[in-house]
Nucleic acid binder design. Structure first.
Length: 251
DNA sequence: AAACGTTGCAACCGCTTTTTC
DNA sequence: AGAAAAAGCGGTTGCAACGTT
């Protein structure tokens, strides 16, 4: 189908929209290569996906951007650059295409006019921003983290130990068996915003005071870090949120 | 009223990344 | 492990609507 000369291009009609909407409602999002056939549309998968994501999706917000949204967008752009999908992910109801279009019209214009103002004034020195990016961790071959001792057979064990281990450990240390179970699993959920929750993350990464654990087998650089997690994380917030927000509001 | 310029948005294109086999 | 297919992303284009001369 895709690449065929018969595939329709250009603006979508109401009938096509209805067919696509009905198809997604019936089969759900995804499997876009099947959508044209399922919906009876003479469109390529890319076109169907784009139409759904940018226009037909139910929660899409229409109309102008609010001041708050513009402020957020500006900060996020300063932090992330042209990563429109990431920026849109932080603006509920806005699509990457919306954000990109808005930026390219309103804000770029505003920035360029601002630059003209700046050119009239003496130049100020701009401090470079520190961008925190995920770094690969390295473990030695003999690290217990890579041996069977730390690989669980049952994922439910992780949840179980998170619930059981902490708060019931009257010594408050991480050396008992329950906490070893917990340590087995923290990496499975630490970057998972949806599945995990902040409470579990704090639990799995830290001791009862919210301090990040120091494990003798950790990479040296990592083990030198001791961060008071409880001071930063608020309810329902995850580590990825925290890392982003640090850069976002510290500018 | 007509010609021309500008704007805003939807859609396309090509490339990269991820997933599947 | 590697190839192919699918998904995702950002840059760019096309065009209708609107404003200006």
């Amino acid at each position: 189908m895709e690449g065929s000369l018969l595939v329709r291009k250009g603006a979508w009609g109401k009938v096509e929209d209805d067919l696509l909407r009905a198809c997604v409602q019936q089969y759900g999002e995804g499997k876009w290569h099947l959508v044209p056939a399922r919906a009876g549309l003479n469109r390529c998968r890319k076109s169907c996906r784009l139409r759904w994501l940018n226009y037909l999706k139910p929660n899409i917000k229409r109309g102008g951007f609010t001041e708050d949204e513009i402020d957020m967008m500006t900060r996020l752009h300063r932090l992330l650059g042209n990563r429109w999908s990431l920026i849109a992910g932080r603006l509920p109801g806005r699509t990457p295409n919306d954000v990109k279009n808005y930026w390219n019209t309103y804000i770029r214009r505003r920035v360029s006019s601002h630059k003209e103002d700046i050119n009239a004034k003496p130049k100020e020195i701009v401090k470079p921003h520190l961008v925190i990016k995920p770094q690969p961790l390295t473990f030695s071959r003999t690290s217990p983290w890579l041996t069977k001792r730390f690989i669980s057979e049952d994922q439910s064990k992780a949840k179980e130990c998170s619930i059981q281990a902490h708060g019931q450990n009257d010594k408050g240390d991480n050396t008992d068996n329950k906490c070893n179970n917990c340590r087995d699993h923290w990496w499975e959920t630490v970057m998972d915003d949806k599945g995990g929750n902040a409470e579990n993350d704090k639990c799995c990464l830290g001791d009862k005071d919210g301090k990040l654990m120091k494990d003798p087998n950790w990479n040296e650089e990592l083990s030198s870090l001791t961060i008071d997690a409880g001071d930063f994380l608020i309810e329902d917030q995850c580590w990825s949120d925290f890392l982003l927000d640090v850069n976002l509001w510290d500018s």
